[in-house]
């Protein structure tokens, strides 16, 4: 359950941003969490209310999106979609690939209320 420590780290970043912009409350937090990030979006959602209690993001909505896993093949130079435990090239079947999307673990955007 490392999602709690990741959530706390997220909230530190969000709180710093809110302070920087003199925000009174954070309304929406947008994240990109890829299937290969090692983080479960549902667990992140479920720990968020506990981690955010008594912070500026207490009322915030956590909006998590994800993009499909894609690989670039070093053998045929093609690009294809892959699955979490089969990162082989979808075109030529070779396993000498590089991940180009799917391991994102990003704080993308924060929307907050500023009273000035």
């Amino acid at each position: 359950m490392h999602e709690l420590s990741i959530c706390q780290s997220l909230l530190n970043q969000v709180s710093n941003l809110a302070a920087e912009h003199n925000a009174s409350a954070v309304e929406n937090i947008y994240l990109q969490v890829g299937p290969l990030s090692g983080v479960e979006p549902e667990l992140l959602q479920s720990v968020f209310p506990f981690a955010s209690a008594n912070t500026v993001a207490e009322q915030a909505k956590l909006i998590i999106s994800s993009m499909p896993i894609r690989v670039h093949c070093r053998t045929c130079s093609g690009e294809s979609e892959a699955t979490i435990n089969r990162l082989v090239c979808g075109l030529c079947g070779d396993w000498h690939t590089e991940l180009i999307a799917g391991d994102e673990l990003l704080l993308e955007r924060v929307e907050m209320r500023t009273d000035h």
């Binding site: 997220l10 912009h21 994240l31 990003l106 704080l107 993308e108 907050m112």
Partner: peptide, 15 residues
């Protein structure tokens, strides 16, 4: 809705 929006793009694990 008039809220301020900041695009960030940092890793959740940046700390």
């Amino acid at each position: 809705s008039g809220a301020a929006a900041v695009d960030v793009l940092t890793s959740l694990l940046s700390e």
